[in-house]
Simulated assay, not measured.
Amino acid sequence: MLPRHERRRIAEIEKGLVLQDPDFADRLRRAELPGRSRPGVRVVLGCVAVVAALLCMVLGEVAGFLLAGLLATVLLAARGWRLLTS
């Protein structure tokens, strides 16, 4: 935990930022911290694709295994990718 004088100084900086640029302060407030977010849709779909690939492998469906494995690889590898919107 920070000492009281440092916490007070940070609070002053935050107040100044809100007064100077409220839009930027709002975006910072809403920003997600790395490592604290919930698993995204791509991660969940990637895990489902892994299970489907394993099921296809057990059932002997080579084409299904390859397709599900490829889908799982793409979805799990794309975990950190973000779409840019204008």
Rank of each mutant, 00 (worst) to 15 (best):
G35K: 10
V48Y: 05
R42P: 03
L17T: 01
R9E: 11
T73Y: 14
P22D: 11
M1Y: 09
L67V: 04
L71D: 02
V43K: 10
C56R: 03
A49S: 10
V44E: 14
V48D: 13
M1N: 13
L55P: 03
E61K: 07
E61L: 03
R4L: 06
P34E: 04
L55K: 08
L2W: 08
A11C: 04
M1R: 13
A11F: 07
L71Y: 07
C47Y: 13
A77W: 01
T85A: 06
R29E: 13
V51G: 01
L17M: 15
M57Y: 06
A53P: 08
L76D: 05
L84D: 07
L84H: 08
A78M: 07
L84S: 12
R9A: 14
I13D: 00
L33N: 09
G80D: 13
V74P: 01
G40D: 09
L19N: 11
L83W: 11
G60N: 02
L2M: 15
P22S: 14
T73W: 15
E14T: 04
I10Q: 00
L19E: 14
R82H: 10
L45G: 08
L28A: 08
R82T: 06
T85D: 03
G69P: 03
D26H: 06
L45S: 02
S86W: 14
A31F: 05
R4I: 02
S37D: 11
R8A: 06
C56G: 03
L17P: 00
L17R: 06
E32N: 01
R79W: 07
V41K: 09
R4C: 00
L17W: 05
C56A: 14
R9K: 08
S37T: 15
D23L: 04
G16W: 03
G16R: 14
E61V: 05
V18T: 13
V18A: 09
R27Y: 04
R30E: 10
V41L: 09
L19D: 12
L17I: 08
W81N: 13
K15G: 05
A68H: 07
G60F: 06
E12N: 14
Q20A: 15
E61R: 08
V62K: 13
T73F: 12
A25V: 02
R38V: 12
R30Q: 14
V62I: 13
L54E: 07
R30L: 07
V62F: 02
L59M: 08
R30A: 14
C56S: 14
I13E: 03
V43G: 04
L66K: 04
L66E: 11
F24T: 11
K15A: 10
F24G: 06
V50Y: 09
A72F: 01
L59W: 07
K15P: 02
S86T: 10
S37R: 15
H5D: 06
L17A: 03
L83F: 04
Q20S: 10
R30T: 11
L2C: 06
V44P: 00
A49E: 01
L28E: 14
R38S: 14
R4N: 01
R7E: 12
C47I: 15
C47K: 09
L19W: 11
L45E: 12
L76H: 09
R7H: 08
A78Q: 10
G64S: 02
V58I: 10
V43S: 03
V74W: 13
R27N: 09
E12W: 00
R8V: 03
L70D: 01
E61I: 03
E61Q: 12
